[in-house]
């Protein structure tokens, strides 16, 4: 461990703003891409469900007519 205390770790020898903003932006971007991928999959799942329901409605209408 290179730092004596948490405050020294946060301060980063006076470069805290630079170091922490670099790490924050990096993992914010990566996290955003990961969230987008998961969100996209949920959307696709909803879309598939909608299409299947529509297909079933069409088939039901065909049978009843």
């Amino acid at each position: 461990m290179q730092f004596d205390s948490w405050s020294a770790f946060i301060a980063m020898g006076g470069y805290g703003v630079y170091v922490w903003s670099a790490f924050f932006v990096t993992f914010f971007c990566i996290g955003l891409l990961a969230l987008e991928a998961v969100w996209r999959r949920t959307k696709l799942r909803d879309e598939a469900k909608k299409q299947q329901a529509r297909q079933q409605r069409i088939e039901k209408a065909k049978r009843e007519s």
């Binding site: 461990m1 290179q2 006076g14 470069y15």
Partner: peptide
Amino acid sequence: GLAYAPPDYQQGESYRI
């Protein structure tokens, strides 16, 4: 990288970027 690597002799802690 953030806690255990040694600081740089010229750049201090800023090099951790």
